[in-house]
């Protein structure tokens, strides 16, 4: 039991910091750049994203291990995972429109884009490839969600600071965001080799 708990903790730390999807694999960049302009949307997106991520990891684990493996149709996993995630995103879309309309309109197109987000798809695929158990899949999903949220919040705080900066005209906005991401990634290489799974 103890080692199981340690493994889960390591998975969460590894997925959120050491193998942070944004800064080490550069996945999920469309949403990352899209909603990191303001802190408010960044925080809202982080929470929504983590929730969808965990639901997606859980649902896809069940679909993969309980339906696809017995039927021996694992080669269809990419299509099936996308379908499951799209359904979940549609559901969270409807729920958010009811309970947080302000945030819903602020996130705009990016909310729908979660369904085609690389990280959301990468996590179930990774779970399937690594043969993670149900709980481990959840931990991995949570870690990835936290990692993405952390990246968004850091980026939003830096971009809000940069709004006051005298950035040369050709670099204003997105180009600068790309440079900042590269530099953060450079800093995050310091985490490499910390935990190996």
């Amino acid at each position: 039991m103890h080692s199981e708990f340690t493994k889960m903790f390591e998975l969460i730390i590894a997925a959120s910091l050491i193998n942070n999807f944004v800064f080490t694999k550069f996945l999920g960049l469309c949403i990352f750049f899209g909603v990191s302009k303001k802190m408010e949307t960044a925080v809202g997106m982080s929470i929504t994203f983590t929730a969808v991520m965990m639901l997606g990891a859980a649902a896809n684990w069940l679909v993969f291990n309980k339906i696809m493996v017995p039927l021996d149709i694992t080669f269809l996993k990419i299509i099936v995972f996308i379908g499951v995630i799209a359904g979940l995103v549609q559901a969270s879309d409807t729920i958010m429109r009811k309970i947080a309309p302000a945030l819903y309109y602020k996130l705009g197109i990016y909310l729908a884009l979660i369904s085609t987000n690389c990280i959301i798809l990468a996590v179930p695929l990774e779970n399937a490839a690594e043969h993670f158990s149900f709980v481990e899949s959840l931990a991995f999903g949570l870690g990835s969600g936290i990692g993405f949220g952390l990246a968004l919040v850091i980026m939003a705080s830096i971009r809000e600071k940069l709004e006051l900066a005298d950035v040369p005209a050709p670099f204003r906005g997105l180009p600068m965001a790309f440079i900042v991401t590269g530099l953060i990634a450079l800093a995050f290489t310091g985490f490499s080799g910390l935990i190996t799974i």
Binding site: I158, K161, L162, L164, A165, D166, V167, P168, F171, M176, I179, V180, L183, A187
Partner: peptide, 10 residues
């Protein structure tokens, strides 16, 4: 690129 002294993040 960040706008010179005083604006750099790193």
């Amino acid at each position: 690129l960040f706008g010179g002294l005083g604006y750099n993040v790193f």
